[in-house]
Design a protein around this nucleic acid. Sequence first.
DNA 1: CGCCGTGTGTGCGCTGCCGAACAGACGGCG
DNA 2: CGCCGTCTGTTCGGCAGCGCACACACGGCG
Lengths: 250, 250
Amino acid sequence: MQSLPGVNPKPGHNPNQNLLLAALPTTEFERLAPHLDLVVMPLGECMYEPGGKLQHVYFPTTAIISLLYVLESGSSTEIASVGNEGLLGISLFMGGDSTPSAAVVQTAGYGYRLAGELLLAEFSRGGSMSNLLLRYTQALATQMFQTAACNRFHTIEQQLCRWLLVTLDRLPSNDLIMTHEQVANALGVRREGITEAAGKLQRAGSISYRRGHIAVLERAALAAGTCECYAVVRKELQRLLPAVRYPRAI
Amino acid sequence: MQSLPGVNPKPGHNPNQNLLLAALPTTEFERLAPHLDLVVMPLGECMYEPGGKLQHVYFPTTAIISLLYVLESGSSTEIASVGNEGLLGISLFMGGDSTPSAAVVQTAGYGYRLAGELLLAEFSRGGSMSNLLLRYTQALATQMFQTAACNRFHTIEQQLCRWLLVTLDRLPSNDLIMTHEQVANALGVRREGITEAAGKLQRAGSISYRRGHIAVLERAALAAGTCECYAVVRKELQRLLPAVRYPRAI
DNA sequence: CGCCGTGTGTGCGCTGCCGAACAGACGGCG
DNA sequence: CGCCGTCTGTTCGGCAGCGCACACACGGCG
């Protein structure tokens, strides 16, 4: 994919829909731009497997990717998620080349792919890019440990509210294409637990759903029903990366 | 504290008791050595507060530090721990200067302190030090997400076994100076839950304890009683930092 | 249109953990 | 030695979430 001056290679798609790329100074952005390939990320696609060596990193624009830890038993739980505020593949520049977690597309969409060695080269220059990436990594670690605390102390209903808000923050609309089963897998709980919590939220008028679709009606009600974890993660992201701004208000 | 050739400033204490410092090439080590101050880390001391700006990093030698997340409710849970295999204060070079977590001394001991700006200067050189620090950070993130999974799926008894093993790995002896209450706080569970699990382990002959002391008798029994989480974290540390070797066998 | 796969609702009994309360036992200190 | 604070053992009711089982209902497809 070539970048010709004044010509947008794919109308409607632009690398700076990714907030990390958008936060780069022009010179650094333009150094990378010719090497960014637009890729489709279909629902359920596994972007990387536990222990697999990474060849590329991905800057999602409209897609959302779940970082999942899969236990020996087969159960799994989301430990963090990556949307257009970040990038997928931090272990490439952290030096490990792989992690014990998997990355699965949770919301279908698009993203830009960059070859590992090019990211590494840019990272080694020590400019804005490396600063952004390190700060983003710290924000991702915040997600992880907050998930730990949330798993320990909070109810399924609180966690469902948090999860819906986190997902909504990265989506243009209020509609998630999701079954209860998929949400349950993300949170690492039973499907019935989600059905029960979602039913409660629906009766309260906060959400409405039908077979695989969830529409958020009252964002504020979810915010009231969730635990502190949502706000902590969000605030920390904004502290670390003030240049990265979610479109929605808190 | 000056480092004169052939003179060990404090007999019995040496910076390369910290495995990260020990893994440095001689030139880099010697650049830092004159600026490393031996400090005492007494049990319960808070090395940093959530949100507090860090001035120093610490390379523990005999001490163990808990990274705790404290909820609004006051309950807390350990999200990772740092011993002589690592360093305390990654947010200093990650760019955030602080984190929402607290760091509390879990096992009293010693460590070496280094001024933040000196660590940053060394980190910016992009030599072995920055590589080690980034890899260590990835290992720390592994601890965090594994804690998330463990909190979700495993019983108190499994978690207690894990916690004892992790602590033991960083200790010269088999004795931990710990009350059930302190362990409960680290795991974010009730004190009674620990009493019950510890009683079970004692009846099985795996450990023995009396008022504030826990002695591990059968390390293998703990390994058998714990979940996969212990092995995953340990294996990942060794993959990322082969130069860092725990004294004990798995 | 009717079928059937796939979501969703609901009802068990069970278990692991919580909150609270209290009895006893250790062990440092005066 | 005896006291008392602190740590440990145990009990009880309660509940959130689990595993299982099954009824139902949507909606795409032939």
